[in-house]
Design a binder for these strands. Structure first.
Lengths: 249, 249
DNA sequence: CGAACTGTTGAGGGCCCTCAAAACAGGTGG
DNA sequence: CCACCTGTTTTGAGGGCCCTCAACAGTTCG
């Protein structure tokens, strides 16, 4: 039914790009060995649905590479994105059988999956996994709360600036740059429609506000997706964030 | 500096009203004994600030009785509520020194506090605490995501109906009634302004929409705060929720 | 009574949504 | 190579929902 295929070979955990950030980050080598025995990889293509809300979920897992979105839909079609899943992010809730949200791959994506039952059994006996999952869940909760401020109180222009600065900040931490002073360059991993679903806007408003930020010199565009931010502090002002830039101290 | 005072006597944990729902829910009696040694009670008055965002936090704790709000403010005064704390809810993040949000008591409130260092030390040695905290955090994350749909995609009328049905549902579970058929009666624990901060609206819009729901017979009002819902299914329709009512299966 | 706070109601305007059309890019087939 | 189609994005015109500003009512407390 789905087009993904399991990889015959499971790459070694010690070579894994998300080894030190995913749910397995704190595992000792013997714990990792046991995880290795119950893991398998699945590959999804850009645009493909990974999970439908309400479906039975037989696995949980980590995004290894690529990007996915978590979203919620109303009956009349209105949809709100409630999570943006990047490499190392966790999918699924231990103890829950039915998926609560739609999960869609927005780029080609590789997921490291664990069958639910063995994973839960292992989690109950391996504090390192539960500890790391707690830490990751608390981070997600903080991000969700930051997002709620954006959704509830910011203007369309501020919303766009907030999203851009979130993406820019993430990229700048990946590239180990100073996120405040240097020029930041990145590609938007989302369509205008996905950005609208993220921000509680329409895609037309997203397009208009991006054009406006470009006209005002806050960002530069090359093609539709490639963004340059000449002055990160300026962008963060536009986002309505204060000098601390929302960095949780 | 604060007007709270410690109670001379710490009530016994086994008599505690939140014993089976708070962060201590899964603790064995010996674990509870150790928690008992590091706990103390603090009492706050309605309207009083419990924590300011950015302040150093020397404790974490559980709401024993009363209601508090978690909120985030922008420089220009716009504020968004990001959490509503009811009895058994946890305050503070283990591992974090500085408070990320403002916490305000909206009613008289009693909190069961643990000094941070001993609590964290105990948490690392007591899987039952970390397990329960993980479960509670996952629940909060689900609630936050439901809330994001409300903030991002619902109309003012739907927002009000959503908030009312959330409060009604909570009260009906407390009262062990059937939340679908029976008449539901409750008191609003929030001012119009707090409801506005919850929903990303102005207080005037909140007032207008409540009046409209009353005029249309969706709710009945006695005074400003006492609400009767004659038909829960109708209210949930108005909230834009489908037949399942957002109950996570 | 007056002050402070909470809540209601009205008038007007602005931001963003809705509907619509067109530009643009990528892919396919003639 | 061009015609054609599909999907994404941009831009325009108009309108509605909610915000802003304002006045007033009800309650509590001094």
């Amino acid at each position: 039914m789905l087009n993904e295929r399991s990889l015959a070979a499971n790459p070694d955990c010690s070579d894994c790009p998300i080894r030190h950030r995913a749910v397995c980050a704190r595992c000792e080598s013997d714990e990792l060995d046991r995880l290795e025995q119950i893991k398998y990889y699945r590959r999804f293509e850009a645009g493909q649905s990974i999970i439908w809300a309400g479906d039975r979920m037989d696995f949980v897992g980590s995004v290894v590479s690529g990007i996915a979105t978590l979203s919620q839909a109303m009956e009349d079609g209105r949809t709100q994105m409630v999570g943006l899943l990047l490499p190392s992010d966790f999918v699924g809730r231990p103890g829950r059988i039915t998926a609560a949200y739609d999960v869609v791959a927005t780029t080609d994506l590789v997921m490291c999956c664990f069958r639910r039952a063995p994973f839960e059994e292992m989690m109950s006996r391996t504090p390192h996994i539960a500890q790391r999952l707690l830490e990751m869940t608390l981070d997600e909760l903080d991000a969700a709360r930051e997002w709620m401020l954006v959704l509830g109180r910011k203007t369309a222009r501020e919303k766009i600036a907030s999203l851009l600065s979130i993406i820019a900040r993430r990229d700048s931490t990946l590239n180990l740059r100073d996120g405040r002073d240097a020029k930041v360059v990145f590609d938007l991993p989302l369509t205008r429609e996905a950005m609208a679903d993220y921000l509680g806007l329409t895609l037309e408003t997203v397009s208009r506000q991006i054009s406006a930020l470009k006209k005002d010199g806050v960002i530069e565009l090359e093609g539709k997706r490639h963004v340059t931010v000449p002055d990160m502090a300026r962008l963060m002002e536009e986002a309505g964030d204060d000098g601390d830039g929302g960095m949780l101290v």
